[in-house]
Design a protein around this nucleic acid. Sequence first.
DNA 1: CTAGGGTTAG
Length: 640
Amino acid sequence: MLPSILTKSTTSPSAARLHLRLLPASSLHTSTPLRLAAIGAPPPPPPPAQSPSFLLPCPSPSYNHYATTLRTCVLSRAVRPGRQLHARLLVSGLGLDPALSIRLVDLYASCGHVSHARRLFDRMPQQWNVFLWNVLIRAYARDGPREAAIEMYRAMVANGSVEPDNFTYPPVLKACAALLDLATGREVHERVGRTRWAADVFVRAGLVDMYAKCGCVDKARAVFDGTAVRDAVLWNSMIAACGQNGRPAEALALCRDMAAEGVGPTIATLVSTISAAADAAALPRGRELHGYGWRRGFGLQDKLKTSLLDMYAKSGLVKVARVVFEQLVHRDLISWNSMICGYGMHGHADEALELFSEMRSEAQVMPDNITFVGILSACNHGGMAKEAKEFFNLMVTVYSIKPTVQHYTCLVDVLGHSGRFEEASDLINGMSVEPDSGIWGALLNGCKIHKNVELAELALQKLIELEPEDAGNYVLLSNIYAQSGKWEEAARARKLMTDRGLKKIIACSWIELKGKSHGFLVGDASHPRSYEIYEELERLEGLMSQAGYVPDTTPVFHNVEDDEKRNMVRGHSERLAIAFGLISTPPGTKLLITKNLRVCEDCHVVIKLISKIVQREIIIRDVNRYHHFVNGECSCKDHW
DNA sequence: CTAGGGTTAG
């Protein structure tokens, strides 16, 4: 059975080749006769039916035969025939001339056989031209080791016989981006600035992407803004840059500007923008993009559907997400993971696990570490400690996936929740990776629920070491000491915080109504309808106390100072956002609120009551999960 | 005398 390339080759530049095959070996290393022969050749003789392939024995293949077939191999990326050709050349005694070697290097490099390409490259130092350097740099940048791409670039510059060009810089920048090597990236940027490639769109897109991946969005933006002629890919790079660096609003704005400047969006534009809308929980905008993608004819593509699925899940509409998932023509790893994680975030543990078993039984995709992050967080949000441990073991033993810190965090979290502190501690001590702030934060969370002062103290000390900038940790630690009568330590913790000049992260919630985002800080009175908002809160408080609600005043583990706390009882940002949502929408409308921190215990109780009193579905998107409040209950079953 | 940049899950 021959690869299709071989059969194809007989139908293409056949005339010349068939003719030349018959030429004597004296035509070796003369590269011209091909075209002349083709022109002067009589009409092609009917191809011999039995020997179409160049791999079948050919009495004395000529140089030109090798050259053209190798060209065909390069064009269709056929390595295997290429390798055979290479071997034949060597045994035939024809050897490799520069032109053939260059083509072979190109073939090997573009088919993922970089080491073969490199071996040939190293043997032909006198032929090193820009193209050859570029071919290798590109291959290393794409298939790794990425360090080699940068090394080759440096070698090229050091060698000095050729200058890097507009085909050199983009892959080098890509390697810098992948390695987060900002220093080299800057160096390249500087060099580019001194050449005539400074304005090249390909180079500039590379720069934007490199800066973005290294976290310097502003630098990326500067490069973008300084580009005279912007094509779709450059816009896409900038949109992705904002999306990947937590600036979704800017990404959405850029998408509009792009359309305004008359640059047509591509599928990548929509995928990136939809993902940004998902991160901003900007459902109306996401829906608009959904419709737009549909009209542009992208709607049938699975890539777009997958980003929509994610967007709907993150906007609280898990059921809609599932409908989109069902409509996929082909489910790849990303779509399975998106859906499983979507269920996980919402605390729909059963659905997540069911989908996982479906994935294992019917799909040709293998679960990866992200799949297990989804599964473990689903168990976690469902309070299923036993299952979480089982899946963790399954991951390690059956799938041979090395657990990452995220997997450990899920386990510590679920163990801490169930008050199984010994197991949690053992796990942390036996971890193959260094515990990070996420691990200690998860442990602390369990300590709060079960009032485990000792372990909380340890966790907080570690947290302060790891995140000296987060003031909340100091306040909590100080409160714990105060609680157990260790006044001196309490004072020391506080002093440490003030000495370092730290302030707490200000809580903020926002709600999107009619395409406009309304943000609220704690105790915020700046909204134009502030008066009505507080009036509504007061009305609700009245109804709640009739229902028997008493504000939570337990001082332990509260992240605020006592005096501060009293002022804040009614002013928590999510309550303001909810009250605003209630007075601005018709009865029965669902509310989606996004918050930059976690929901506090008291607010959780209050929102449950509100959902019952006003008969509304309220969805809160926390830093790490979703809460669906319906008729006095929350989907997290008080487990968060 | 050849080729290339951006894209979703955690």
